[in-house]
């Protein structure tokens, strides 16, 4: 899964010479929180976020708003003055997994996608990843999610998939969560059916534990 399949191609950008009030206007208008800063050759020279703007602009409650000198100073501020010059970028031929790990590690909400020559090709943000995650979960199709706790040994998935397939039930997705109880995995089959009572009984009779929905979690790593 390459970035160029998932990224947003139409990027809203701004130049380093633009005023920060213009940058704020662009963000508000487009409902975005990141603006890549590009030069006249569409090369990325920085990035500016809504957080950068918030620290540069005084709040509405601040008294310096009435101070004409302070106002003048703010209006004169340029994007180039407050932007982050050290940009974390990613290449169109990096993968979705690269983006997930890099965004997690660098704590960034968006990464400009830049080719080998430094040209801006797109942007990948949490918004794109959210969309991809919805697709992976298959939850836009009607279905029912189950959660089974299984021993971590070879062949378990086959048994589960076979048992469900024998009932003629199509799959929307199947997720496996690691870092569960030691030696165990949590398997989440998303079944495209309303008719789950029988297959639930069948799986229980095969010795699998159906986990109480109130205990479900994809992220056991965080708790510990």
């Amino acid at each position: 899964m390459f970035i160029n399949k998932t990224m947003t191609r139409r990027v809203i950008t701004i130049g380093p010479e633009a005023g920060i009030l213009e940058a704020r206007g662009k963000m508000e208008e487009n409902g975005i929180r990141h603006l890549p800063v590009v030069d006249e050759n569409n090369k990325v020279v920085g990035i500016i976020t809504d957080r950068d703007l918030r620290s540069a602009l005084p709040s509405v409650f601040s008294t310096c708003r009435e101070d004409p000198k302070e106002l003048q100073r703010i209006s004169a501020l340029k994007v180039g003055d407050v932007m982050n010059k050290k940009v974390t970028t990613i290449s169109p031929m990096d993968t979705l997994e690269d983006a997930l790990l890099l965004m997690h590690k660098s704590n960034k909400g968006a990464l400009p996608v830049v080719d080998r020559d430094g040209n801006l090709k797109g942007i990948i943000s949490t918004r794109d990843l959210v969309r991809a995650f919805i697709n992976v979960l298959g939850i836009e199709e009607p279905g029912t999610l189950l959660c089974l706790v299984v021993e971590e040994k070879l062949g378990q998935m086959k048994k589960i998939v076979d048992a469900i397939t024998e009932e003629g039930i199509p799959f929307g997705s199947i997720l496996v969560a690691r870092h569960w109880e030691k030696g165990k995995r949590a398997v989440f089959p998303y079944l495209l059916t309303v008719n789950v009572a029988k297959v639930k009984r069948k799986l229980e009779n095969m010795g699998y534990t159906l986990l109480d929905p109130m205990e479900w979690s994809l992220d056991q790593t965080r708790k510990s």
């Binding site: 939850i139 836009e140 199709e141 009607p142 279905g143 029912t144 999610l145």
Partner: peptide, 8 residues
């Protein structure tokens, strides 16, 4: 809907 059909 996260626990039951149809998910809406």
């Amino acid at each position: 809907p996260s626990f039951s059909y149809p998910g809406t």
